[in-house]
């Protein structure tokens, strides 16, 4: 894991994140799950290259993220991504919008790294040759080519998270949604993920308890009990968040 070069790993050189950013719009979204209101009439738009989302456990952060790719269907209101409806056109949205789950063990479905990276590509109709090319490129991009034929079960938590991310990046998404990406990582792997995230040319929406991860973002949103209560530059919102939960 020590061979990481963040600039190369992220491959950000010369790529302007804003060129990839999609416009995500929540219009009056309410989500009720198991009798609990997870999101309460949320209306908000995202088009920045970096957006952080903070809030306590159960505040609705993950639900908000899952609504974007139609994994959670709003009880009322609607979500659109570049004009596409998140529920009705989920497939098209998922092609351009990757999702990195909190626990990489839940995201990796094949027993061997190389096979797993091809899963999303095959689902989206890429040919065998093209799948191999893109898997190779994604492994190179995150500097984990040496893991290609390893069994998932033998990997460390940090390696698994990078494999899961490589599976997402292999599809060349415009946006990547991160759901508490550092929750299962030790300090070293957390720092590595932060470096990768910083260098990522894709638009990134990051839900995190790890406030440092979003500290230099141009925009951070704070959620409380299913509502947006603060929305602004990172320092401003994070100060308020720290103050409110002292």
């Amino acid at each position: 894991m020590s061979d990481t070069n963040p600039e190369r790993a992220g491959g950000a050189t010369g790529v302007d994140p804003r060129a990839l950013a999609q416009t995500i719009v929540f219009s009056g979204v309410t989500v009720v799950r198991d009798g609990r209101t997870a999101l309460d009439r949320v209306s908000i738009g995202f088009e920045e290259a970096r957006i952080g989302i903070v809030g306590l456990n159960g505040s609705g952060k993950s639900t908000l993220l899952k609504c974007i790719i139609g994994l959670v269907k709003p009880s009322a209101g609607s979500v659109s991504v570049d004009g596409r409806d998140a529920v009705g056109e989920a497939r098209a949205i998922r092609r351009a919008t990757g999702f990195l789950f909190q626990d990489p063990d839940n995201q990796i479905v094949f027993p061997v790294v190389g096979e797993d990276l091809g899963f999303g590509l095959k689902n989206h109709g890429y040919s065998r040759a093209e799948t191999a090319d893109r898997v190779e490129a994604a492994l190179t991009r995150l500097a984990i080519r040496h893991l290609a034929s390893r069994r998932i079960h033998e990997l460390s938590g940090g390696e698994k998270q990078l494999v899961a991310l490589a599976g997402v990046l292999a599809l060349a998404p415009k946006t990547v949604l991160f759901d508490e990406p550092t929750a299962h990582l030790d300090l070293k792997n957390r720092n590595r993920l932060r470096d990768v995230l910083q260098a990522l040319p894709e638009q990134a929406i990051v839900v995190s308890h790890d406030l440092e991860l979003v500290a230099d973002f141009p925009r951070v949103v704070m959620i409380e009990a299913g509502r947006i209560v603060r929305d602004g530059p990172a320092d401003e919102v994070l100060d308020h968040y720290r103050e409110a939960n002292r």
């Binding site: 899952k66 790719i69 994994l71 497939r91 998922r94 092609r95 990757g98 999702f99 789950f101 839940n106 995201q107 479905v109 899963f119 999303g120 689902n123 989206h124 599976g167 599809l171």
Partner: peptide, 9 residues
């Protein structure tokens, strides 16, 4: 796991 499989297309 099911959510992740769906998210991956």
């Amino acid at each position: 796991v099911a959510d992740a499989i769906d998210a991956r297309g």
